[in-house]
Design a protein around this nucleic acid. Sequence first.
DNA 1: GATGAATGAGCCTTCATTCAT
DNA 2: AATGAATGAAGGCTCATTCAT
Lengths: 200, 200, 200, 200
Amino acid sequence: MSTVSTDRTLARRQQVLDAAASAFRRRGFHAASMAEIAKAAGMSPGHIYNLFQNKDDVIAAIVEHDCAAVVQRIIDLQREDDVLQAMLAETHSAFDDSTKVADAALTLEILAEASRNPALAAVLQRAQAQVLAKVEDLIRQTLGPRAEQLPAAEITARAMMLGALFNGLTAMSVRQPDLATMGTEIAPVMQRLLRLLLTP
Amino acid sequence: MSTVSTDRTLARRQQVLDAAASAFRRRGFHAASMAEIAKAAGMSPGHIYNLFQNKDDVIAAIVEHDCAAVVQRIIDLQREDDVLQAMLAETHSAFDDSTKVADAALTLEILAEASRNPALAAVLQRAQAQVLAKVEDLIRQTLGPRAEQLPAAEITARAMMLGALFNGLTAMSVRQPDLATMGTEIAPVMQRLLRLLLTP
Amino acid sequence: MSTVSTDRTLARRQQVLDAAASAFRRRGFHAASMAEIAKAAGMSPGHIYNLFQNKDDVIAAIVEHDCAAVVQRIIDLQREDDVLQAMLAETHSAFDDSTKVADAALTLEILAEASRNPALAAVLQRAQAQVLAKVEDLIRQTLGPRAEQLPAAEITARAMMLGALFNGLTAMSVRQPDLATMGTEIAPVMQRLLRLLLTP
Amino acid sequence: MSTVSTDRTLARRQQVLDAAASAFRRRGFHAASMAEIAKAAGMSPGHIYNLFQNKDDVIAAIVEHDCAAVVQRIIDLQREDDVLQAMLAETHSAFDDSTKVADAALTLEILAEASRNPALAAVLQRAQAQVLAKVEDLIRQTLGPRAEQLPAAEITARAMMLGALFNGLTAMSVRQPDLATMGTEIAPVMQRLLRLLLTP
DNA sequence: GATGAATGAGCCTTCATTCAT
DNA sequence: AATGAATGAAGGCTCATTCAT
C-alpha cells in the first residue's frame, strides 16, 4: 500500500467503492464476495488488495463516504424553507423508497459489524461526530435567536435524539414493513416529536 | 424433528438457545459456528439438528424468546408507579449496561439478517406485532381515561414512535458509545419526548 | 445379533426389508437414510441394528429376496404357452413400466456397490448362481428333446447371454429413456435374438 | 467459471478429470471425496471449483470424455478387416482385463446416478445419441450394399440391441466374475448373436 | 499497475451407528 | 424386544487473501 495517490488510483478506488456499495446493499456485507465486487468494478480480485487493505477496509471507506452524503443531505435540509416539513418527507421515504429500505439493511449490518470490529467502530464514531456537529448546526438554525439561550449540552442532546429517531425508523422499517400502508397516520406524531426537538 | 416435546428435549433445546444466544452476542450470527455452539451447549454438532432444523431456525427461536422477554419487560413497566421514570432508567441502562450493549449488537444483526431472509423476517414481524400491541396497552394506561378519546391509529402511531425511539437508542449506542459519558444530559430531552408520547 | 429367529423377529425383519426396498427404489441406496427406513418400517433406527448388522446387510437381504422373485418369475415363464412371446412382453415393460425403471436404478446401484463391496459381491454371486440354473432349466425346456444333444456349457453360455441381454436392456433404459417411444421397432430384433438363444 | 479456456486451464481441468476418473473407478462416485481428488490432481480442493461447477459437473465431464473414447473405439473397429472377430475380442477383455472391470463399476454407478440426476441423465443421453449414430454406421458397413434395403428403424433397433448386449456383459462381469474362467465357451454364442445383428 | 490462478481453513449439514434405559 | 437421544467423522463447497508473472 503506497501512500501516494495518483488521480488514476483514486479513480480506481472509487470504482471499487461504487461496486462494493452496490453489492453490499444488494446482498449484504457478508454475502457479497470480493470476486463479485471485483467483477462489478471491472478489475481483478487481486488488484483490490492493491487499493484497500482488506474487505473491512472497503466497508470502512464506504462508511466514510456515506457519512459525507448524510452531511450533505443535512446541508440541503438547512436550505429548505420549512425544515420540519422536509424532515417529514424524509420520514415517509424511509418506508416507501425501496432504495432506502435496502440502505437500511446495510446500515444495520454495518452497525452490527462495528460493535464487534474496533477499527470499523472508530471510523463510525469519527463519521458520527461530523454528523452530530452538523445536526447541531441545523437545530441551532431552526431554534433561531433563542439558540444562544440554551446550553450546548441541550443542543447536543437534541441532536442525539434526532439521530436516534431516524435510526429507529430504519430499524422499524425492517420490524414492520407494513408500516408503509398506514404511513400517513405516523406523520402527525412524528411532526410533534420533531417540533419538540427543533423549536424552543 | 418430532413435534412432540418431552421435558428433556425442551431442556436440551434451551441449552442450545442459551449457548447460541451467548455465542451470537459475543461473535455475531455469521461468525459463530455451529460447532462452537454445540460445544458450549454440551452436545455434538449433529445433535443440534435433532432439535432445530438449521442455524436459521436457532436464531428464529432466539428472536421469539427475546420477544417474550421484551413483552415481559413491558408488563413489568406497567406495574411501576411512575412509568415514565422507569422508562428513563431503561434508557440509561441501554448505554451503561454492557449486557445491553452486547444485546444491541445482536439485535442489529438480526434486523440486518431479517431484511434479507424472508423466513426470519416473518418471525420478526410476528414478534413485533405482539410487542406493538403490548406497547399500545401501556400507552392507553398512561393516557388514563382520555385514551378513549384518541383514535386507535393515534395510539398505534405513538407506540411505533416509542419503538423507534428505543431502537434508535440501540443504534446510537453503537454509533456513539461515549454517549454514556454525557448520559445525564440526555435525560431531560428524552423525558419530554416520552411525555409527548405517553400523555394526552 | 442372536441367531434364534422367532416368528415375530422374522416379521420385523420383513417390515424393514419392505420399507428399505421401497426407500432404496425411490431414492437410491446411498440417498436413503436408515432413519427414513426405520420410520417407514414403523420402528426405531436403533432397532434395525438388532435385526441387521448394518445398512449393507439390509441391501444384501434385499438382493437375496429379489433373487427369489426373479426365480419365481422364471418359473411363471416356464408355465406360459409361448415363452418367447412372454419374454417379449417383459422387454416392453422394462421401458414402459415406471416401477421397472425404478427397479433398474436400484439394480444398477447394487451392481456398482457390489463391484466394490466383497460381501455384497458374494451375496450377488450366490443369487446369480440360482438364477442362472433356473434360466438353464428354462432354455432346456424351450429347446425340447434336442436339449440333450447340446453340451452343458452351450446351455450355460446361452443362459448367460440371456442374462446379459436383459441386464443390458436395463442399462439402455437409463441411457435412452426415449426408447419407449419407438419401442415397437425393437420387438422383431429382440425376437430373433431370443429365438437364437431359446431354440436349437 | 470463465468460458474462455487457456491451454493452462485446459491442462488443469484434465488433471482433475484424470484424478477424478481414477478415484471414482477405485472408490466409487459417492465414496471419492473432492479433497481426495484435489490431492491426486495436485491442487487445492477450492481450485477444483474454479475449473468445475461442482462434483456433478466433474462426473459429467468424465461421461463426455468416456463417450468420445467409445466413439473412437468404434471408429477403430470400423477399420478392422473382420469386425465381428474384433468385437469378440472386445467381449473377452470385458472379463479378463482388470481395467475394464474397474470401468464397469464406474459405468454402472454413473447409470444409477443418472437415473436420479436429471442433469447427468441429459449428458448421458446426449453422449448416447452420438454412440448410437456411430454404431448404426458400423452396422451399415458390415451389412454392405444390402443396408439400403433395410428400414432405418431396423438399423437403429439393431444398434440398440448391440448396445444392450455389451452393457449387459458389463453387468454380468459383476454378477458372475468367474465367467472369465469359462470365457471361451461364450464366444460361439456371442458370435452367433453378433452375426445376427451385423449381417443381413 | 494489474492479473487471476491458487490456496486452505472453515462452514453447515448429514447420517450410519451406538448405547443407556 | 425396543427406543430414540446422542455421537462425531466426513463431505461438498465458499471465499478472503496471496503471489508469481
